[in-house]
Amino acid sequence: MDLLALTDFVTVARHGGFGRASRASGRPKATLSRRVAELETSLGLRLFERGARMLKLTEEGRALHERAGALLTELDETATAIASGGSKPQGRLRISAPLLFTQMAMGKLAAGFALKYPKVRLEVTTEDRPVDMVEEGYDLVIRVNPDPDESLVGRAFLRDELIIASAPGLVNTAGEVVPAVVRGNPGPTRSWTMTTSVGSSSLKFDPVLTLSSMTMVRDAVLMGVGAACLPLSLASQDLETGRLFRWGNVEGSETVLWALYPSRRLLSAKVSAFLDYLKQAFPSGTAEELAAYMEK
Rank of each mutant, 00 (worst) to 15 (best):
V141T: 06
V36K: 00
L43D: 03
A24R: 11
L3R: 15
S253E: 01
S96W: 04
R46G: 09
F245H: 07
F9D: 03
Y277S: 09
D238G: 06
S42D: 13
G51D: 03
M1V: 13
L234M: 12
G26N: 02
K270P: 01
R14F: 13
K270G: 04
A156N: 12
P148W: 07
A227L: 11
S200K: 08
A13G: 13
V256Y: 05
A114M: 10
A114V: 09
H65A: 14
M133K: 03
F274M: 12
A291H: 07
G17V: 05
P118G: 11
S201A: 11
S236P: 03
A24W: 06
L47P: 04
R50M: 09
D2E: 06
S42H: 10
S22Y: 07
L71N: 06
V181I: 13
G242W: 05
A111S: 08
L45A: 15
K270H: 14
L152E: 04
V208K: 06
E127I: 13
H65C: 11
A13L: 10
V271G: 13
G137W: 02
G107S: 11
T189C: 02
G91V: 13
V141K: 01
L211M: 15
F18S: 01
N145W: 06
L211C: 08
A21W: 04
P188H: 12
K116R: 15
A21D: 01
K88G: 12
G107E: 05
D2N: 15
L75A: 15
V171T: 13
G184N: 07
L234R: 08
P89E: 01
K56F: 09
L266S: 15
A111R: 06
V144R: 09
D132S: 11
H65G: 09
L57V: 11
G107Y: 00
D8E: 12
V271I: 15
L244I: 12
A228N: 05
S202L: 10
G248P: 04
T73R: 14
L162G: 03
M133G: 04
A81H: 08
L57M: 14
